[in-house]
Each structure stands twice: as C-alpha cells, then as structure tokens.
C-alpha cells in the first residue's frame, strides 16, 4: 500500500504509480490541470515517467473564476 496526500487529503494507492496513472482518477481533461509533487511543478510531458511513491504530497489545481 502506498500512502500519499492529494490536495491535503490522505489517499491510498494499491501500488506505486506514475503521476499520469494517479491523475486518471481525476475526471478532468489533463490540459485543465497542473500538478505539484512535493511543491515542485511537474510538467505534463513528465507525468508518464514521474513515479509517485510513499509520502508524496500532490497538489492538483485547475483554473476557476476570479478577479
């Protein structure tokens, strides 16, 4: 079991995954998202190669209305 944090919430993964695999659990088009792993932005080109392991902290953000 791999324990990570996504947007402040504890999430358990059945096994280590790539960032791309983790994001498939989020039902938003991938180009609407940006992702930080441990406070570093991971460019989308690297999502398929970036491994997510125990203790990683993810921030998944999108754009919303604002002024």
């Amino acid at each position: 079991m791999v324990e990570i944090t996504v947007n402040g919430q504890a999430v358990n993964l059945p096994r280590p995954m790539t960032l791309e695999e983790v994001l498939k659990r989020v039902d938003v088009p991938p180009n609407y998202l940006a992702v930080e792993v441990n406070a570093e932005v991971i460019p989308r080109e690297e999502h398929s190669s970036h491994s997510i392991g125990n203790g990683d902290e993810l921030e998944v953000v999108t754009l919303v209305g604002g002024g």
């Binding site: 402040g8 938003v28 998202l33 953000v61 999108t62 754009l63 919303v64 604002g66 002024g67």
Partner: peptide, 19 residues
C-alpha cells in the same frame, strides 16, 4: 480576462469547468 488557481473543487457545483 483574469482567472484564479485553485485546488479541490475541480468542478463547480454544476459540474462545469470555467475553461
């Protein structure tokens, strides 16, 4: 137009994305 960056509520309450 200016837009904000936010986490958690990936969709609004009606399931829409501003983009």
């Amino acid at each position: 137009v200016t837009v904000a960056v936010r986490r958690e509520r990936l969709y609004d309450r009606n399931g829409q994305n501003i983009l």
